[in-house]
């Protein structure tokens, strides 16, 4: 296989990063958790494309294998887990209709910050990410390092989702956005962390999502809702 030309590589890498950032923004935009999870899966594909492109460009087969793993985890397994948790939370109104049962479990109806303001905040966060990332870009100028602010912007947007969304599953997506952003930063900055660390991190993230999924079910049992605002038992 011949290495990709630098021009094409830069184009495709920028495209993958653009799609990656766009997916984070769309997560902020949508209210239906199903759509949010689908967007998250698409972001996983964009994320996997980054190491794939770097691997193809630098002809590093290990990186291509890592990309496959990342894609399988972020675009396959994690969205599948989320979809299953969502299905468990929203009983399909088949045999028995509960009129009083609201469909709000499947929607982020009232985020702490409304969607228009969230989107404008995301714009500000992106600019902040570019400002913060300036020394990072300056350290090793190249197509990958120039895209570094995208990773940081997704980290900030993930934190923002985590802080302002009230559905438990939306918070999980926020955490995963944060994690995707960090993974993208790692690939763009240094072609990824060493394999053992990457494996450990992926495994930890998978377990964390499993734990959060179980806790969501328990929360639904204990509180009757997955609205984080209803968690008011513990305070001083």
């Amino acid at each position: 296989m011949r290495p990709m030309s630098t021009g094409t590589y830069t184009q495709l890498l920028d495209l993958a990063c653009g799609a990656f950032l766009l997916a984070a923004v769309v997560v902020l935009w949508r209210r239906e958790l199903v759509a949010i999870v689908r967007t998250f899966a698409l972001q996983g594909i964009a994320l996997a494309a980054i190491p794939l492109l770097i691997g193809l460009h630098e002809q590093r087969w290990g990186l291509i294998a890592v990309a496959t793993g990342i894609g399988a985890l972020r675009a396959g397994l994690l969205p599948y887990l989320m979809r299953r948790a969502l299905a468990a939370l929203t009983p399909s109104g088949g045999e028995e209709h509960h009129y009083e049962e609201d469909v709000s479990e499947a929607r982020e109806t009232q985020p702490l910050v409304n969607v228009a303001a969230s989107l404008l905040t995301a714009a500000a966060l992106t600019l902040l990410a570019y400002a913060v990332a300036r020394p990072l870009v300056a350290l090793n100028p190249g197509p990958a390092a120039r895209a570094l602010p995208v990773g940081l912007a997704v980290v900030l947007i993930g934190l923002f989702v985590l802080a302002t969304r009230r559905r438990a599953l939306a918070q999980v997506v926020g955490f995963l956005l944060l994690d995707n952003g960090i993974t993208a930063t790692a690939f763009l900055a240094a072609s990824g962390v060493p394999l053992i660390v990457e494996l450990g991190v992926s495994f930890d993230v998978l377990l964390a999502v499993l734990v959060l999924q179980i806790l969501t079910t328990r929360m639904r049992t204990a509180f009757g809702t997955t609205d984080i605002d209803d968690l008011r038992e513990l305070h001083d």
Binding site: Q171, V211, M219, T221
Partner: peptide
């Protein structure tokens, strides 16, 4: 314990 308080604590803790 799976009570409301402990589920809440666990959620906050993990997140």
């Amino acid at each position: 314990r799976r009570t409301r308080a402990s589920v809440e604590a666990a959620w906050k803790y993990v997140v």
